[in-house]
């Protein structure tokens, strides 16, 4: 069995440019570190890592509880600043049932519009979740078909 344990021996702060700085062993400061989730979609709360500016792993956290309070807030805040997966709550309109099709949707981040290039850009994740990728590579999440209203379901059904 291969296992990875949390190794938390760093603390976090922000510098004047707003960059995240990790202070590791012996007070060495690493500027521009990046927190990431290992399974951002299937298990967003299990498995985090802190990468340095070159993309090498500085630390692994199996869950955030292992981080002390102030660091955890900085970590979470930095995570959310990098995450952009709007969740589609409602489909208002689609320009056509053939692709490319322009979708007008309501998301948890407000209303928006995007171009769906092909039906293969709607992928099923662990059911019942769906992921829609637009022409610029932004991913949108649909939690479940059943949570959408009738109109949205009907529109979406034409692409599934």
């Amino acid at each position: 069995m291969i296992e990875t344990k949390s190794n938390v021996d760093f603390s976090l702060k922000r510098d004047l440019f707003g960059r995240l700085v990790a202070i590791v062993k012996d007070g060495v400061e690493k500027v521009g570190v990046v927190p990431v989730r290992a399974f951002p979609i299937s298990a967003p709360t299990a498995g985090f890592a802190l990468l340095d500016a070159e993309g090498h792993e500085l630390a692994w956290l199996s869950d955030l509880a292992s981080l002390p309070r102030p660091d955890r807030e900085i970590f979470e805040q930095a995570l959310s600043a990098r995450e952009f997966t709007p969740e589609i709550r409602r489909l208002l309109e689609v320009s056509s049932f053939a692709t490319p099709s322009t979708w007008t949707v309501e998301t948890d981040r407000g209303p928006t519009r995007f171009v769906l290039k092909g039906v293969e850009d709607i992928r099923s994740l662990t059911p019942p979740r769906l992921m829609v990728t637009d022409s610029h590579g932004v991913n949108y999440l649909i939690q479940s078909l059943n949570l959408l209203d009738r109109h949205s379901r009907k529109l979406l059904d034409r692409f599934l």
């Binding site: 004047l16 440019f17 707003g18 990098r82 995450e83 952009f84 997966t85 637009d134 610029h136 590579g137 932004v138 991913n139």
Partner: peptide
Amino acid sequence: DHAGVATLELRDAKHTLSR
């Protein structure tokens, strides 16, 4: 930019003015 979101930061020599 990252994951479809681009960020533009205005800086002077010492710190970030806006983002």
